[in-house]
């Protein structure tokens, strides 16, 4: 019995409950990030006396960390592909690589935040700064939760309990991970690349 057939053997639509759960959750998350992005956009020109977004964003740096996150989607999908073949070892390597790239992205975000802080953009500086840190912070928390899930998978894999039979679990974590990535694709373009107001 293949993993697919095991997971779906008795639902009305033939679709796995768990996967549907994740997709429903991601549909819901669209509204969450939409709200945060809107809250940022209406506030991006309200920088009060603090730094303006156009003055402070470091596009080359953010481009690199965006690229890192984008490539973590590739390693994630390779991890899934490996476990679907029953290749436990490569699955583990790609999961670790994904978690590593995710951590690199988070590290970049921490660096970005501390730099901004040094340049006078604190959380309470202006409506712009509050909205910026809240939006990117929420995204960062999502990435961190994803890393925790990936590491749980890795531990599970070392204990020998992550096999081809439950590749769907990897797939579901992957869906979450890719979603976090597409949210960043949106944020990177709309918040960073589209020219921001300068002071």
């Amino acid at each position: 019995m293949s993993s697919e057939a095991h997971a779906v053997h008795d639902t009305t639509t033939g679709i796995s409950n768990n996967k549907l759960l994740m997709w429903a959750f991601l549909g819901s998350e669209c509204l969450l990030f939409g709200g945060l992005i809107s809250a940022y956009l209406v506030n991006r020109s309200r920088f009060h006396t603090g730094p303006a977004p156009g003055d402070i964003f470091d596009i080359p740096f953010t481009s690199v960390s965006s690229f890192v996150l984008l490539m973590s989607s590739l390693t994630m999908v390779l991890a899934l592909s490996a476990i679907q073949r029953g290749d436990v070892r490569n699955n583990r390597i790609w999961l670790l690589a994904t978690a590593l790239l995710g951590s690199l992205f988070i590290g970049g975000q921490v660096y970005e935040f501390t730099t901004f802080l040094r340049e006078g953009l604190g959380y309470t500086t202006s409506p712009f700064s509050s909205a910026f840190f809240t939006l990117t912070g929420f995204h960062g928390v999502h990435v961190s939760v994803g890393i925790v899930m990936l590491m749980s998978l890795v531990i599970s894999s070392y204990r020998g309990t992550l096999t081809k039979k439950n590749s769907e679990t990897v797939e579901i974590v992957g869906l979450y991970w890719h979603f976090v990535d597409v949210v960043w694709i949106f944020i990177f373009t709309v918040i960073y690349l589209v020219p921001s107001p300068t002071s």
Binding site: G14, I15, L20, W23, C30, L31, V77, G174, H178, D181
Partner: peptide, 24 residues
């Protein structure tokens, strides 16, 4: 491309796409 290929929406049940696209 990420949604269609990496998230397998191209190959998976159309129900998943509906959930996601409705939210979007």
């Amino acid at each position: 491309y990420v949604a269609a290929w990496f998230m397998h929406l191209r190959f998976d049940s159309v129900l998943f796409t509906r959930f996601f696209v409705t939210g979007l």
